[in-house]
Every structure is written in structure tokens, then in C-alpha cells.
């Protein structure tokens, strides 16, 4: 029982990341009709926003180490610590949450620039062209990051206060053996909040209403005298922000390296297809579902029965779903059913 609960929780935080990336991906597909292979790279850029913020905050000055007396030793001390003392240390410790605030405008700008500069010229081109050009863009982004930050993963810790594990078992009355890292719990909550915010935005604002209408019938909305293109540009920006935020928050869980986006991209495409092309609810549901499935498949008991299942479960599910239910779990009729 404990093990099952733990696996569900494990799956939920991974599923949260899948759901966030897939949400943006399907939002872009549903509105702009563009298959964006560079979406994983946006996730990666978000993660590197956090890395950059941390690097800037820990910019250091070489000072003489007073504790060593027999020779001249130097240590690096961050400027923030020099200027603000303990408060500076605190700021550095909280670099990941701080970078959320900074990542939002940056990712929005990147998203808008990408849509204006490249994606909009590909609305009328076939899907194959869209896939290819965004694939090229993803390689370029990846290589730029690599040339700045190197090829190795960069560990970026979460704030100290949430570095440990949460005694989930005690809270739920299952005994003390069931523990769960705080940060993963926070990630789960965070992804829930972001998903809720996106849905609320689409459901309860006029802007969201227009976007939803545009997803159903772009032409008619355009004929009503609404500038659909502009709204869709903003939607692309929002999708970029969502992917970026998913990346920022994922940094303490997985030290980011330059190709993390590609790894997640393949998975999140599978998530989108399983959920149903262009269906937001489907993408979220499929994200969590596949996350949980994956964590169950990596249990030793199951691996003993079917060896290697943990490696292929997601793809296997994807293959079965595409073949049996081409519309995915919640896909709308007539959207990319071919």
C-alpha cells in the first residue's frame, strides 16, 4: 500500500512536468495549427533561466580567507553576501523561486519573438516543414546554450528549507517510512496552480473566450472583425512561459543540461497525441496518467515480470492509443484525425 502511494506520488510530479509541456504544445497546435518541435527547447531555456539567475546571484569576489593563517589563502565570496550579510546568503539560497519572476518576462519575450520571427511564416506550410524548421531551431538553441554553459549538467539546489523530505506517511497515517522530497511536492502543487491558471484564463476572460472560439473556427472569428493573429501570438507567448516555468521549477529535481529539452520533447509529443491533438484537458490528463504509469513500470515487482517495461511503457501506450483511438483520449472530432 505504501509503495503504491509512493509510486503514485512519484508519477504525479513527473506527470506534472509532462502535463505542463504538453499543455503549451497542444495550446500552440490548437490555436496556430503549428507542430512545434522547439517546445522542448523552451523548457530547457526556462531551466537555464534559473541557472543564469543563480550564477548572477553568486557572482563572487576573491577575498582573503581569514581563517587560514599560515599562508595567503583566497576564497570566493558572493557580492551579495558582502553587501547584505546573512540576507544576501538567503537571497542566494532562494535563487530558484526568484528566477520564476525573472523567467516569466524573458520567456514571454522569447516566445513572442519566435512567433513573430519564424513561426508565423509557417502557418500555411505543410506540417513536415513546420516540424523540420522548429527541429532546426531547437538544435540551434541547444547549441547556443551548450557554448555558454558547457555540456555537463549544472546542479542548482532548491532553497535549504525545502531540501529535505516531507513526512507524508505521518500526515496520512501510514507510518514514518513513507517520505517524499519536499521539492517534488511543491512541483506538483506548482504545476497544478499553473494548469489551473491557464484554464481559468481561457475560460473566464474575454481574451480566453476569443482564443477558444478561434481554436474552433478561426475563419469565422476573423470575419467578425477580431484580430485573431495577434491573440494567437500572445497565446504562443503564454505557451512559452508555461514551458519555461516548468523548466525553472524542474531544475532542483534534475540538474539541467543542454539536451534535456529534446528528452522531454519526445515524451511530451507522445503525451499530446495520447491526450488528443488540440485538447487541453486531454494533454493534462494524459501527462499525469503517463507519469504515473511510468513510475509504476519502474517498480521492481513489475520489472521482474516484464523486463525492460520501464524503458518503453510510454511509447508502448502511445503506439496502442494511436492505433486504437486515433483521436487520443479526449481529442475533438475532426482535428487531425487522419
Amino acid at each position: 500500500m505504501d509503495a503504491i502511494l509512493l509510486q503514485i506520488l512519484n508519477g504525479l510530479d513527473k506527470g506534472g512536468a509532462y502535463a505542463l509541456i504538453a499543455l503549451g504544445l497542444t495550446l500552440v497546435f490548437g490555436t496556430l495549427g503549428v507542430v512545434n518541435f522547439a517546445h522542448g527547447a523552451l523548457f530547457m531555456l526556462g531551466a537555464f533561466c534559473a541557472v543564469t539567475v543563480q550564477k548572477i546571484l553568486t557572482l563572487s569576489l576573491k577575498v582573503k580567507d581569514e581563517s587560514i593563517t599560515f599562508f595567503d589563502a583566497y576564497k570566493e565570496q558572493p557580492y551579495l553576501e558582502l553587501w547584505f550579510g546573512d540576507f544576501g546568503t538567503k537571497i542566494i539560497d532562494w535563487s530558484v523561486p526568484i528566477s520564476i519572476v525573472i523567467a516569466i518576462p524573458i520567456m514571454l519575450l522569447i516566445g513572442l519573438a519566435m512567433e513573430r520571427g519564424l513561426i508565423r511564416h509557417f502557418y500555411k506550410r505543410p506540417h513536415a516543414d513546420q516540424i523540420l524548421v522548429t527541429f532546426g531551431l531547437a538544435i540551434v538553441m541547444q547549441e547556443i546554450i551548450k557554448s555558454f554553459f558547457g555540456a555537463n549538467p549544472i546542479p542548482t539546489p532548491a532553497p535549504e528549507i525545502v531540501a529535505g523530505s516531507a513526512p507524508i506517511g505521518v500526515l496520512l497515517g501510514l507510518g514514518e517510512s513513507v517520505v517524499y522530497p519536499w521539492w517534488r511536492l511543491i512541483y506538483l502543487l506548482f504545476s497544478g496552480v499553473v494548469i489551473f491558471a491557464v484554464f481559468a484564463f481561457l475560460q473566464f476572460t474575454t481574451f480566453g473566450m476569443v482564443v477558444r472560439a478561434g481554436m474552433h473556427d478561426r475563419e469565422t472569428v476573423g470575419l467578425l472583425g477580431i484580430n485573431v493573429e495577434r491573440r494567437f501570438t500572445i497565446v504562443f507567448g503564454i505557451a512559452a512561459v508555461v514551458a519555461g516555468l516548468a523548466g525553472v521549477m524542474y531544475v532542483p529535481i534534475l540538474p539541467p543540461d543542454y539536451h534535456m529539452g529534446m528528452d522531454f520533447l519526445v515524451l511530451s509529443f507522445v503525451v499530446v497525441v495520447v491526450g488528443g491533438m488540440g485538447s487541453l484537458g486531454g494533454a493534462v490528463a494524459a501527462g499525469f496518467l503517463l507519469g504515473i504509469l511510468q513510475s509504476f513500470a519502474s517498480m521492481n515487482e513489475i520489472k521482474d515480470i516484464i523486463p525492460g517495461i520501464d524503458q518503453i511503457i510510454i511509447y508502448l501506450v502511445a503506439v496502442v492509443i494511436i492505433l486504437v483511438r486515433p483521436r487520443g483520449l479526449m481529442g475533438r472530432k475532426g482535428v487531425m484525425e487522419d
Partner: peptide, 22 residues
Amino acid sequence: LRRSGIYFSILTLAFAQMSYNL
């Protein structure tokens, strides 16, 4: 080949990733 377009791409990708992981 039971599907076309992007679904075909994803299916082939899924098979390739499965083989690679295995």
C-alpha cells in the same frame, strides 16, 4: 502506416525510441 501525417511520424519515433531504450 495505419496512420498518416504527424501520427505516422510519432509512431515511427515511438518505435525507434523503444528499440533504442531496449
